[in-house]
Design a protein around this nucleic acid. Structure first.
Length: 317
DNA sequence: GGTTGACCTGA
DNA sequence: CAGGTCAAC
């Protein structure tokens, strides 16, 4: 479909695309140039551009599909969770924590995306003991191998994320081994098979309606899903805004910068330490603690160091 | 219960 | 080692 730029009015400090799309919560957004990002959402190909007067977007869909601006804006409002008042939350978190206040000054407009639980879950099964660059290429490989074609934009073919049913097919584990997924090949295949038994993706979606602890425990039953991955899924696609994923990085910074009882005693990230960190930040930041924590730690992500340096350099000139 | 090492791969 | 998970002490 031919597409034109449409404007979604919101300021940069309400939604900062550069930080939000590239911080490691979702792995399929590609930066086209300094201002534009492109990727797949809700079965369509979207191109975004950040401007001083809002976000501009273009949509490319399957040939048969008819575009509705109302519907597209609804998709974006849901995905970017624009109904959530970020200013109010930043103010609240800043009032609770001086360290947050400092970090927040360099990271405005960061939002959690409301992702599709299927893509979110399988992407983070890939994340264990892995780096963001390879996670991204593995997710891309899953889509190209098993996802349906959406359309072609500027010579690039875009695919949907594969269905659970496709990932549950018998040959998948071996094929993923051949695609260099390593031990994650088995986790993906086994988890897909279990989800098929649990009424496909409806079971995952239904976890949006249950309390955090229950959703977290249910996810941890899946192969390849431990406390950290389960918290990522809870936070990023199941509406658990106070879920705190604790990776090695969060653990180290927590030990260094925050005085959390019992934490300094353990030499490694034990279950006890894991829970102590989550509980500490939940008590500190409240209902949206998962969001606050993401702001706090995405700023230190290696991927961001470059853009931060650039920012400083630009301001010096 | 907490600790330890293996597990795939690639930079 | 990299944004972990699992199983065996």
């Amino acid at each position: 479909m031919a597409s034109v730029w449409k404007r979604l009015s919101c300021d940069g400090d309400v939604l900062n695309l550069g930080i939000t799309l590239v911080c490691g919560q979702a792995f399929r957004w590609k930066k086209l140039n300094n201002e534009e990002w492109c990727g797949v959402l809700s079965g369509k190909v979207w191109t975004f551009k950040q401007s001083s007067d809002g976000i501009y977007y273009k949509v490319n869909s399957r040939l048969s599909e008819v575009e509705s601006t109302t519907q597209n804006e609804s998709i974006l409002n849901d995905y970017f969770q624009l109904n959530i008042d970020l200013h109010h939350l930043y103010d609240h978190w800043s009032s609770r924590d001086d360290n947050f206040k400092q970090v927040a000054a360099t990271i405005s407009g960061f939002r959690l995306l409301r992702q599709d639980p299927v893509e979110n879950l399988f992407s983070f099964i890939c994340s264990s003991n892995n780096n963001i660059e390879r996670i991204s290429s593995m997710v891309e490989a899953l889509c190209v191998k098993y996802g349906g074609i959406i359309t072609e934009v500027n010579g690039v073919v875009y695919h949907d994320f594969p269905s659970i049913a496709t990932l549950a097919e018998p040959q998948v584990e071996q094929e993923l081994r051949e695609l260099k997924f390593g031990y994650r090949a088995k986790f993906i295949h086994e988890t897909a098979k279990i989800l098929m038994k649990k009424c496909n993706k409806d079971w995952l979606i239904s976890l949006r309606e249950v309390p955090y602890e229950e959703a977290h425990a249910a996810l941890c039953e899946l192969p390849g899903v431990g406390a950290k991955v389960a918290d990522c899924v809870c936070l990023m696609s199941l509406d658990k805004t106070d879920a705190i994923p604790v990776d090695t990085h969060v653990w180290q910074i927590s030990c260094r910068d925050y005085n959390i009882p019992d934490l300094k005693k353990s030499k490694s990230l034990t279950n006890k330490a894991y829970k102590a960190i989550g509980d500490h930040f939940r008590q500190l930041f409240g209902k949206y603690a998962g969001w606050a924590n993401s702001v706090l730690f995405s700023g230190d992500l290696k991927k961001f160091q470059d853009s931060k340096v650039n920012y400083i350099q630009v301001s010096l000139i």
